[in-house]
Amino acid sequence: MNESVSRRRFLSRGVTGLSAVWASAHWPALLAAATHAHQAAKSAAPPKFEFFTPEEAKEIDAITSRIIPTDDTPGAHEAGVVYFIDRGLTTFGVDDQKTYREGLPELQARVTEVFQGKSKFSELTPEQQDEVLHSFDEESPKGRQRRFRTSPGAQNFFETLRQHTIAGFLIDPDYGGNHDAAGWKVIGREREHMFQPPFGYYDKGYPGWEVAAKADMKEAEKK
């Protein structure tokens, strides 16, 4: 593992107790805005972009589709992540609009810089798209090896978009993203919010505390 990556991870995870929830997530302030998409998400009207132009939406959708790609299971595209982000930015995320407004043109400029004759991210092959994104990702070892100028703005844009994509893919579908619970299907989380034991493979057939304790002790005695 690249040393600086391990350091970053280490900082984000080497905390205890409750703090793990807040510190491990590194919630960006801008992410908070997206929650206000909640109401918008509940409306029955067909999705319509309010912040992005259709062209921009196509680019954002293409980027989110590399962050969580579609393979034999749904990805960010099927989960409607671009709609989640759009709604977040048009409700309370006014402060975050700048990151997108400035970041997206920078990304397109990078596309032209790397792949002459191309002007749009969405026109590239998936491999080319990944190459562009690695150059933006300050934590990516591949990004580090490239000689492109680093731009904090673009990096911030990519990191913001990465986190928004994850949130839009995995949030409870009731709160404005994760369309049709696509993200939860991928990770194996059932849609319900009430469960009964047995919960998983290992607690199936658990005989109860006293019986389990006795059985384990007998086994230990045999040895």
Binding site: M1, S6, R9, S12, R13, A20, V21, S24, A25, H26, R66, I67, I68, P69, D71, T73, G75, D130, L133, D137, E139, S140, R162, Q163, T165, I166, A167, F169, L170, I171, G183, W184, V186, I187, R189
Partner: peptide
């Protein structure tokens, strides 16, 4: 939770995005 797991629950060498992350 699903989101906090994606940010902090996967093995440390996992890429931060893309096919292998998913």
């Amino acid at each position: 939770t699903p989101i906090t797991f994606a940010f902090g629950g996967v093995p440390p060498e996992t890429p931060r995005w893309g096919k292998d992350f998913k």
